[in-house]
């Protein structure tokens, strides 16, 4: 099972500048675990205290994972996952 994961500019130092990488997992949690094994440290930029960081957006295909069960969001072969940092501030 392989899932394409699109990596934002700010996280590309972890992926040797690759814009997209391939990972496996049947839920977002297992996908992030696999990503972190391949690219150590990236998991910490996505999670905080075991939850998705507030200002990181992750989408499965076109849907924000917050509407798909967050870390429990199911992922299947052929899905495309996109990670984008929020554009936000005060």
């Amino acid at each position: 099972m392989s899932i394409e994961v699109r990596i934002p500019t700010i996280l590309r130092p972890f992926t040797k500048d690759q814009k997209a990488v391939v990972a496996t997992g049947s839920t977002l949690t297992s996908l992030i675990t696999d990503l972190d094994q391949q690219y150590p440290g990236i998991g910490d930029r996505l999670l905080e205290n075991g939850a998705l960081r507030r200002f990181i957006n992750i989408y499965v295909n076109d849907e924000d994972v917050r509407f798909l069960g967050s870390l429990e969001a199911p992922i299947k072969d052929g899905d495309s996952v996109t990670i984008l940092p929020a554009v936000a501030g005060g």
């Binding site: 957006n57 989408y59 076109d62 924000d64 917050r66 996109t82 984008l84 929020a86 554009v87 936000a88 501030g89 005060g90």
Partner: peptide
Amino acid sequence: PMINAAHSPTFYEFDPKDLLALY
């Protein structure tokens, strides 16, 4: 121009759906 999803005088955030569409 983007919608400030926070609708706030002290915070702004692009709506996550608009953000994906933008990228």
